[in-house]
């Protein structure tokens, strides 16, 4: 019985938790900084194709996205190929020029990331590229997944 008493009298069994809020806050700040809150709600279906010789876009703030794919219709149906910039579908292809030009004025090193559905045809993309040329946003990136 005396032995039992001795054991209990030894070191404390509790883990010190006073630093826990600090640790949690550190993690919190990490995730707050890395989070990109504003995700675009896609109105077109975009399944990216795959490629192997790809590069990463390091500076995300330079990137502006253009989505091309079949329009999502109510009832899980898909319509014709449409172009989406930011949150809205652009019916008028000619308007892309001014939109992209405004973006270029804000950020000179703009990269346009073209997220095109793999099953779409090249025609719409051709029109968009022509607009991009006119707007002067010549740096593009065909968004693809990694093949490996």
């Amino acid at each position: 019985m005396a032995n039992f008493k001795k054991k209990q009298a030894g070191t404390k069994q509790e883990v010190p938790t006073s630093a826990m809020p600090d640790v949690v806050f550190m993690l919190l700040f990490f995730f707050m900084v890395t989070t990109v809150l504003r995700e675009v709600t896609l109105k077109v279906k975009v399944d990216l194709t795959k490629a192997s010789n790809i590069e990463k876009i390091e500076e995300k703030r330079l990137v502006s996205y253009i989505y091309i794919g079949p329009e999502r219709l109510p009832g899980n149906k898909f319509g014709n190929d449409k172009v989406q910039i930011d949150d809205s579908i652009q019916e008028d292809i000619g308007a892309i020029r001014t939109i992209m030009y405004d973006k270029l004025l804000e950020e000179q090193r703009l990269i346009v990331s073209l997220r095109v559905d793999e099953n779409s045809e090249f025609g719409v993309l051709t029109d968009v590229q022509e607009e991009l040329k006119q707007a002067g946003t010549l740096r593009v990136n065909y968004s693809t997944k990694n093949e490996n």
Partner: peptide, 22 residues
Amino acid sequence: LIFFLVTTTINVDTGIGMVLPP
């Protein structure tokens, strides 16, 4: 922390970079 953990998507954009002709 849990909120940001759930909402975070750490995805790196990859693609084929090109420069369009003027």
